[in-house]
Amino acid sequence: MGFSVGFVIGLVGVLILSHAAYSTSQYRGLLKITEDEFSGPPFSVVVELIVGLVLCMWAALTVPGNFLSIHPHSDENRMVSLPDNLDFMIFNHRGKVFVPEINMKLKH
């Protein structure tokens, strides 16, 4: 299958996050029964949230693709020549004198 490592890790991260949400709601249900005040999520949920966040972030940064350079002088961005101004191209140049060697014809 075409699932990359990054994609699987992202999936695991989402699962951990949803498990954290589920255990929080469970915990609040338990608090209602014991009639305690809600002071904060249990320690295990906090750990789950942090782990899930890290995994999802890592997957989101690696799976969609590589970063592109924003430096103007990097090879992807550095301009070495302008396009030939084809809208203004004229035909009286030395091509008239030098007939191309290839003598091809459009066959149909």
Binding site: E76, R78, M79, V80, S81, P83
Partner: peptide, 9 residues
């Protein structure tokens, strides 16, 4: 515009 990497390609 022709960038360096495009020229190489």
């Amino acid at each position: 515009m022709v960038t360096k990497s495009e020229e190489t390609e």
